[in-house]
């Protein structure tokens, strides 16, 4: 790595390539992959990751253009700079893949994830859960006399933080969507 240790935002596309391709530092990148929405396309992408031993931290997919039958797959992955470059190149080889964007290096981007939390508890714990949910701008989408279900959106870090707070307050179940991300501007 360069002495600047710049990870995010530095790339081959910037004026100065500050990332050492041979460094063994592990980076986390968010990739957006635009694909034809055809049978088996998700299996091709996942099969590439498992077959070549790459990591998937999260993956979301949905059709984004009904007329053009294209879907957007958002993948959060980790690896050394060389591995990340290789992942992008390998994704680009898949025939129904139209575009591969590395949002982590292409400039600022917004990353959001949605999660549902079921928190069971009574008395003070229940009140505290509700109060913290308010702080985190989580919505109550279901409630019983002994539980709340919260809906929260935000960065993965925010959701992690909320989960840590809910754990001692009776966190019973959680579902996360994985990251959806767009470049800013």
């Amino acid at each position: 790595m360069s002495p600047l240790k710049i990870k995010k935002g530095s790339s081959r596309h910037s004026a100065y390539d500050l990332r050492d391709p041979n460094a063994d530092v592990i980076e986390r990148h968010t990739l957006a992959v635009i694909v034809d929405n055809e049978a088996g396309v998700l299996a091709r992408v996942i099969g590439l990751f498992s077959g070549r031993g790459y990591n998937i931290e999260s993956l979301t997919v949905a059709e984004i253009d009904h007329l053009g039958h294209t879907s957007r797959i958002t993948i959060v992955t980790t690896g050394t700079p060389a591995v990340i470059e290789q992942i992008k190149a390998q994704l680009g080889r898949i025939v129904p893949v139209h575009e591969v964007h590395d949002l982590t290096v292409e400039g600022a981007c917004v990353e959001r994830e949605l999660a549902l939390f079921k928190v069971a508890g009574e008395g003070d714990k229940r009140v505290e859960a509700l109060r913290l949910a308010d702080v985190f701008r989580a919505n109550v989408v279901d409630s019983t006399l002994t539980s709340f279900t919260f809906e929260i959106t935000g960065s993965p870090e925010k959701i992690d933080a909320f989960a840590e707070l809910m754990r001692p307050l009776g966190l019973a179940e959680m579902a996360r969507t994985g990251v959806a991300a767009l470049a800013r501007g």
Partner: peptide, 11 residues
């Protein structure tokens, strides 16, 4: 012709 061949093994 295959971008994935570049820098896969040797920089």
């Amino acid at each position: 012709i295959d971008p994935s061949s570049i820098n896969k093994v040797i920089h």
